[in-house]
Simulated scan of single mutants.
Amino acid sequence: MFNSIPPVTRNIIILNVIVFVVTGFLLPQYGGILAAYYPFSPNFRSWQIITHMFMHGGYMHIIFNMFTLFSFGPILERSLGEKKYLILYFLSGLGAFFLFNLWNFYEVQQLSTELVNANFNIADVFMKSDLSKFNYNPELFVSNEKAYNLYEALTTPMVGASGAIFGVVAAFATLYPDAKIGIMFIPIPMKVKYVLPVVVIGSIYLGVSGNGGGIAHLAHVGGAIVGFILARIWRKHLYRFN
């Protein structure tokens, strides 16, 4: 059955599983440098823009992501062709990284301004956030909530293929809006054109409100926006070229 999956989707799944096993069990010390940190954090490296898409935070995270990709990816890959599908996947992942960190930038700037106005030395927070020189220790700033939050923003990485996969799902919803999908706890299949907007609105609320529970909800939104835009552009020529 696995061999029947189109090559790009199959290889993305294989690569995600390999990276999960290597960084989770064989070489865990490399996990920190492959996850994506805030771009102005001392922990950020340029390659993280791509490598974070193949990192996952646990078994359920990777299982859910790969199952979703397995469910929607093959149809899109066959419809768009391998080249467009690959472009869709990685641009959606980049869109996820961009939107998530655009909001991070707003929050970090706000925290930094408030700390400077309170005569707090934010350079000390940035210096001690360098995980190549210091161990992760949020208790350093636990006495100051804003300094603690700034430290967390600089030392907490984003991982996962969710942003790229949200782009795939959004593209699927754009090209096949009347397709019905099953959702947990809802016994009746629903059209994807109704499900996706609800999920995106919910993700925006959770991401902006700070009630995300450690999930990068705005990354999902960024990926979905890119997937929607690309699918709208390609939809006009889909059947002409494929």
Score class of each variant (00 low, 15 high):
118 A>M: 07
62 I>G: 08
96 A>D: 02
143 S>W: 02
160 G>E: 01
157 P>D: 08
189 P>Y: 00
1 M>T: 06
2 F>R: 01
203 S>A: 13
148 Y>M: 13
33 I>G: 08
149 N>K: 15
4 S>I: 06
68 T>L: 10
22 V>D: 12
149 N>D: 15
236 K>V: 04
129 S>R: 03
20 F>V: 01
138 P>D: 06
202 G>T: 14
91 L>Y: 07
18 I>S: 12
149 N>P: 01
66 M>K: 03
159 V>I: 12
82 E>H: 07
77 E>K: 06
7 P>T: 12
98 F>R: 00
65 N>S: 15
137 N>W: 08
88 L>T: 01
39 P>T: 10
120 F>D: 01
63 I>G: 02
6 P>C: 11
173 A>N: 03
111 L>E: 04
147 A>W: 13
8 V>I: 11
15 L>W: 09
134 F>A: 07
122 I>Q: 10
114 E>S: 07
208 V>M: 11
212 G>N: 13
171 A>R: 12
39 P>Y: 06
79 S>I: 00
60 M>G: 07
128 K>Q: 15
232 R>W: 02
149 N>Q: 13
110 Q>Y: 14
48 Q>W: 09
47 W>D: 06
86 L>P: 01
173 A>E: 00
240 R>F: 10
239 Y>W: 11
220 H>M: 00
189 P>V: 00
156 T>F: 05
207 G>P: 03
51 T>L: 05
233 I>K: 11
37 Y>I: 05
213 G>E: 01
195 V>E: 09
157 P>E: 04
194 Y>M: 03
141 F>M: 09
43 N>V: 07
195 V>M: 06
8 V>Y: 10
23 T>Y: 09
131 L>W: 05
222 G>Y: 01
27 L>M: 12
238 L>V: 07
78 R>D: 11
234 W>C: 14
193 K>P: 00
166 F>D: 01
163 G>T: 02
240 R>C: 03
127 M>H: 10
132 S>T: 14
174 T>I: 05
180 K>H: 02
26 L>Y: 07
110 Q>K: 14
26 L>V: 15
120 F>A: 10
19 V>P: 03
53 M>G: 10
158 M>Q: 05
43 N>C: 05
142 V>L: 09
